[in-house]
Every structure is written in C-alpha cells, then in structure tokens.
C-alpha cells in the first residue's frame, strides 16, 4: 500500500457561496470535492438564518497537491473573506492511491 503526501483544503461557510467555491476549486485544478452540512457558531454566525435559503452552513473539502491548494485558498480569501462568514484551513494528509489526485492524472 502506497501513501502519498497531499493537502486537504477545508472551507466552511454559508451555503450561498459554497457551491460556487466547490465549482471554482475544480476549475482551479482539484479533481473533486466533498460537501457536508455542518453546524457551528462564530462571530459572524448571526448573519445566517437557517430558514432563509442560503442560511445553512456547509463544509467543502478538496484533496489536492500543494500548488492547487494555495491557488484555491488565495481565491477564497480574496473573494469571500471580507464580507461572508467563512473559515478555511489547510492540513497535511496521507492518501491511498494519491496519484489519482495529482493534477492532470485521472
């Protein structure tokens, strides 16, 4: 079993923008993404009302090589950090069949 070192990009924010972020992530080089509905609280959470459309909190995750991870995080921070309730981070992961996640190899 071979394990490949890759990066896990996690972005959590209001559902209104998360679809766009997921799709943009794919355009920027990710081979896929996972979206989960989550719950939480933070300084800007009161902006969200769950009964209003776009008011849920979603988590989007990408497993990508370092350069793609940086591009995605730059895009997210430039585009959304100023006005939306959002949090993003990067972590190291070891992935089985990691070659699949490298850019251009499918």
């Amino acid at each position: 079993m071979d394990l490949y070192p890759l990066k896990l990009v996690t972005v959590i924010g209001e559902s209104l923008i998360m679809r766009d972020i997921a799709e943009k992530g794919v355009k920027l080089g990710a081979t896929g993404f996972t979206i989960t509905q989550v719950e939480g609280d933070g300084p800007r959470s009161s902006q969200n009302v769950e009964i209003a459309p776009g008011g849920k909190t979603l988590k989007v995750e990408f497993v990508v090589p370092t350069d793609v991870a940086t591009t995605i995080l730059t895009h997210v921070s430039e585009e959304y950090f100023e006005h939306y309730s959002i949090v993003a981070w990067l972590s190291d992961v070891m992935v089985i069949r990691g070659a699949l996640y490298l850019n251009g190899i499918k």
Binding site: N48, I51, G54, E82, H83, Y84
Partner: peptide, 17 residues
Amino acid sequence: YIAAPPAVRMSLPEANP
C-alpha cells in the same frame, strides 16, 4: 425573508444581513 436575503447577500455582500 425568503426571496430577498440570498439576492441581497449575492449582489450587496457588504450589507450586514
């Protein structure tokens, strides 16, 4: 409170919801 919030959030993100 159904139609307006997402529209405002998209086009005027600087407005405080």
